[in-house]
Amino acid sequence: MATYIQIDPTQKLDPFKSVKKLPLEEYFTSGHRTCQGCESALVMKMMAKAAGPRSIILGSTGCMYVANTTYYSTSWVVPWMHTQLGSSGSAALGTSAALKVLMRKGKIKNEPINVIAFCGDGGGADMGVGAISATLTHAEYNSLILMYDNESYANTDIQLSGSTPWGANTTFSSPGKVKRIMHRRWKKNMAGMMAAGHPECKYVATICMSYGLHGMNSIRKALAIGGPTFIHSLDPCPKGWDYDPYLSHEMGELAVNSGVWPLYEVENGLLRLTGRTEQIAAGKIRRVPVRDYLLKQGRFAHFTNDDIDYFQSKIDDMWEKWLIPGVIPFRRDVEADTPPSS
């Protein structure tokens, strides 16, 4: 069968066997001015460690741009370039296309170079979703788009994004005397959308760096498989979520163990629930109540018990009523959705 698409070779990136076998080198290092306990900075560090030195990283506007690289200073060891808020997809595509053609024409040395473009949930789930979607259809260009999701425009002052959970307090949805719940939209399901909508995309995954080895190995898989890939990382944000920074790691574990954040990967069209989520689905461990997760965060401090119950019921639906639990919100039967009156 004729191949119409020429996918260039990628780097061989075997999974890290264990945390004790990780390379010591850092390619994203100190000097950034992120918040105490910033999980997104941790994602950057692990992403760079997983990718290694022969990588080019593009960063769209957001915390990981403003706070990591304040002009004349940088935290990056590998080459890094800023791209516009909605341009992570375009940046990955343009960089990958340049490398491909320059190598083909012999204008630069022919070698596999990782191309990673990252964006926050504002840049990814809101403004940049069109460009990311387009890039995931360009099967001949190797790249990874990593969306670090701290569930708000955390850099600009914690305004709500399409990825902010229902009811959360943000500067654009702060509760008042009359209205308690100002944000009534449910979180956008980016990974599911990308996996379902882009048949040529060989790898889509959700990660949370509280499970660092799992996350780094997903990134290595995404970079090695060839073509455009997408990873959605949930990053607890002590600033916007309003919790004590020392809880950052635990907050990520709670998100996964409460079932709020399912871990999965879609590799060459094959869906696999991963990590703790796999055990939850297999009934090996029980989901912890969503309440334990919500009540540790100041952004939900205004929630009534009804609000918490509603949140729990939506998570239960995700696990019990979705045709593909935690991944795609198709259902067998229609039911009325009855949020508490705000």
């Binding site: 030195p53 022969r54 990588s55 080019i56 741009y65 403003v66 990591n68 690289t69 304040t70 002009y71 004349y72 200073s73 940088t74 990056w76 060891v77 590998v78 080459p79 890094w80 370039m81 800023h82 960089t95 630069i108 170079i113």
Partner: peptide
């Protein structure tokens, strides 16, 4: 912008 020329381009100023 290439691994052989590690630079950071356009940090926020």
């Amino acid at each position: 912008l290439h691994p052989d020329n590690p630079i950071t381009v356009a940090p926020q100023g």
